[in-house]
């Protein structure tokens, strides 16, 4: 338990009769960037609200840095910075005033406000009313607000929403920076796997309130086994021959046979075998299911 920044144990949550989160056991290691993935409505935001104690969990289900959250609400929240859904910004105040207000609430030095503004690149707009900010600027101000207390754990709910490609890259680099140089733990939710793939060290995939996969990004890659696609004449005969020769056939179409990929040497041997037997092999192709498809598969089947 000591190594996790966040741990939930069989977490359940209902809105009335509707179960939103079912038996969720998250394990977010300290210092990791944990990509919390799932389609819209999977229960990501609800989970984040539970982690912030905005929604009540049972007394033995949610642990922040090893401490149960209901009994240590204030101590836990002191270590968390969060951006939930739309950034919560007072439109009638300027960007800087928003940050100063947060400094007041957190009891920290107001000079932090300027520091945060330059960190997220809003120094030039610091005296502009936040309601006049573009979506991307609001998102960045939201991140600055989450960071202002220098928390050990950051909960970012779709932080790249509404950002342009440049902004997305900036946020991505900022997250990597925070995790590697400042040793922060980041839980970042998203419905886009491609987004998570580039930053996350760990991934949890949630759908309809259930955790379908949890592990390192490499473990996720391993899930997508590479396959060898063979374009060959007389496919059904070729397939029968290969089965006889002890190969496992994953799929046969009228032009192709698909077998598991093991190594380039094995692929070559298989090719030789087919040619010796008089089949015409027109192509051998190593097919790797990308994570996007894998993600779709995982969430579709459940």
């Amino acid at each position: 338990m000591g190594n996790y920044a966040i741990e939930t144990v069989g977490l359940n949550f209902n809105f009335g009769n509707q179960a939103i989160v079912k038996d969720l056991s998250l394990q977010v290691p300290k210092g990791s960037i944990y990509g919390f993935l799932g389609p819209n409505g999977a229960g990501k935001t609800t989970t984040i609200k539970i982690l912030l104690n905005l929604l009540k969990s049972s007394n033995d289900q949610v642990f922040i840095f090893g401490k149960e959250i209901n009994h240590n609400r204030i101590a836990s929240l002191k270590r968390i910075g969060a951006l939930v859904e739309q950034p919560a910004i007072y439109g009638h105040l300027t960007g800087k005033e928003n940050l100063i207000n947060r400094c007041i609430l957190l009891g920290i030095n107001k000079s932090k406000a300027d520091e945060m503004l330059s960190l997220v690149g809003l120094s030039d707009a610091s005296n502009k009313k936040a309601s006049k900010y573009s979506l991307g600027m609001k998102q960045r101000l939201g991140i600055a607000l989450a960071l202002v207390s220098d928390p050990e754990l950051l909960l970012l709910d779709e932080p790249t929403n509404g950002l342009d490609p440049n902004g997305i890259i900036e946020v991505r680099n900022l997250m990597i920076d925070l995790a590697t140089k400042h040793n922060k733990t980041i839980l970042v939710s998203s419905h886009l796997l491609a987004e998570i793939e580039r930053t996350a060290t760990h991934v949890g995939i949630i759908n309809k309130g259930r955790l379908l996969f949890q592990g390192t990004i490499n473990e996720l890659h391993l899930l997508s086994k590479p396959m060898l696609e063979i374009e060959v004449s007389k496919t059904s005969d070729a397939a029968a021959f290969l089965t006889q020769a002890g190969y496992e056939i994953l799929e046969i179409t009228d032009k192709k046979i698909i077998v598991p990929f093991t190594s380039p040497e094995d692929s070559g041997a298989l090719n030789t075998l087919l040619i010796q037997k008089g089949f015409t092999v027109s192509s051998l192709y190593l097919q790797k299911k990308d994570l996007e498809n894998l993600f779709l598969d995982i969430t579709k089947n459940n």
């Binding site: 104690n53 910004i89 009638h92």
Partner: peptide, 18 residues
């Protein structure tokens, strides 16, 4: 309304304050 309008209730209650 300051909190309703800006949807800031949840942020307010996620601060480490009683």
């Amino acid at each position: 309304n300051i909190e309703h309008k800006n949807d800031t209730w949840k942020t307010l209650f996620a601060q480490p304050l009683n």
